[in-house]
Computed example of a mutant assay.
Amino acid sequence: MPVPVVLITGALTGIGRSTALAYARQGANLVVSGRHDDVGEQLARELGDLGAQAEFVRADVRSDGDVENLVDRAVERFGRLDVALDNAGTEGTPGEAVFPEP
């Protein structure tokens, strides 16, 4: 069975970071992203110390170009993408939810 290739946005803290560490312990190849280069590079090193092949790609999920580059880099590095965990959140006040009439 091939090693899974996993991309995680919002990987620098919280659930994203914990998920990246769990996948690394299971032997996955990882591309992790976030908006802080120093924290991202440190995480990639930690994942590597766990035996994973890992790369940090700086990306802001609010930017279509950043997201496109992120996916392209994952496929370029590992040849495919098996799992994408879209974990990144945004700050601020969300808009009003609109639900259709039943």
Score class of each variant (00 low, 15 high):
residue 16 G to D: 01
residue 32 V to F: 08
residue 27 G to E: 01
residue 68 E to W: 02
residue 66 D to T: 07
residue 33 S to D: 04
residue 4 P to F: 03
residue 65 G to M: 07
residue 8 I to E: 05
residue 95 G to T: 09
residue 61 V to N: 13
residue 86 D to W: 03
residue 31 V to N: 08
residue 67 V to S: 10
residue 41 E to T: 13
residue 102 P to N: 10
residue 34 G to K: 02
residue 77 R to I: 14
residue 39 V to R: 11
residue 44 A to I: 11
residue 2 P to N: 12
residue 88 A to P: 05
residue 56 F to D: 07
residue 91 E to L: 14
residue 89 G to T: 03
residue 100 P to Y: 01
residue 48 G to C: 09
residue 2 P to A: 14
residue 39 V to S: 04
residue 27 G to V: 03
residue 16 G to C: 05
residue 68 E to I: 10
residue 22 A to P: 06
residue 35 R to P: 01
residue 20 A to P: 05
residue 96 E to G: 08
residue 85 L to K: 00
residue 6 V to G: 00
residue 67 V to Q: 05
residue 53 Q to M: 10
residue 85 L to D: 08
residue 93 T to G: 05
residue 81 L to A: 05
residue 94 P to V: 01
residue 11 A to H: 04
residue 5 V to F: 00
residue 97 A to L: 14
residue 3 V to P: 01
residue 60 D to L: 02
residue 37 D to Y: 02
residue 22 A to H: 04
residue 50 L to P: 09
residue 4 P to Q: 13
residue 52 A to E: 04
residue 6 V to E: 00
residue 55 E to L: 15
residue 18 S to D: 13
residue 50 L to T: 03
residue 57 V to F: 06
residue 43 L to E: 04
residue 73 R to L: 11
residue 26 Q to V: 09
residue 29 N to T: 15
residue 102 P to A: 07
residue 79 G to H: 11
residue 34 G to R: 02
residue 102 P to L: 05
residue 41 E to Q: 15
residue 55 E to P: 02
residue 30 L to C: 09
residue 58 R to I: 01
residue 90 T to C: 10
residue 87 N to K: 01
residue 51 G to C: 02
residue 71 V to M: 10
residue 33 S to V: 10
residue 53 Q to K: 14
residue 15 I to P: 00
residue 81 L to N: 04
residue 31 V to P: 04
residue 57 V to W: 06
residue 31 V to A: 10
residue 19 T to H: 01
residue 38 D to Y: 01
residue 43 L to H: 04
residue 33 S to L: 08
residue 33 S to E: 05
residue 48 G to A: 11
residue 30 L to I: 14
residue 62 R to I: 09
residue 101 E to Y: 13
residue 42 Q to G: 12
residue 16 G to S: 05
residue 87 N to A: 03
residue 25 R to F: 04
residue 24 A to F: 08
residue 53 Q to R: 15
residue 56 F to Y: 14
residue 30 L to N: 09
residue 91 E to C: 03
residue 55 E to S: 15
residue 1 M to D: 08
residue 63 S to C: 07
residue 31 V to T: 11
residue 45 R to I: 10
residue 47 L to A: 09
residue 92 G to N: 01
residue 28 A to D: 04
residue 5 V to K: 01
residue 36 H to V: 15
residue 23 Y to P: 10
residue 59 A to P: 08
residue 18 S to N: 13
residue 73 R to P: 11
residue 49 D to L: 08
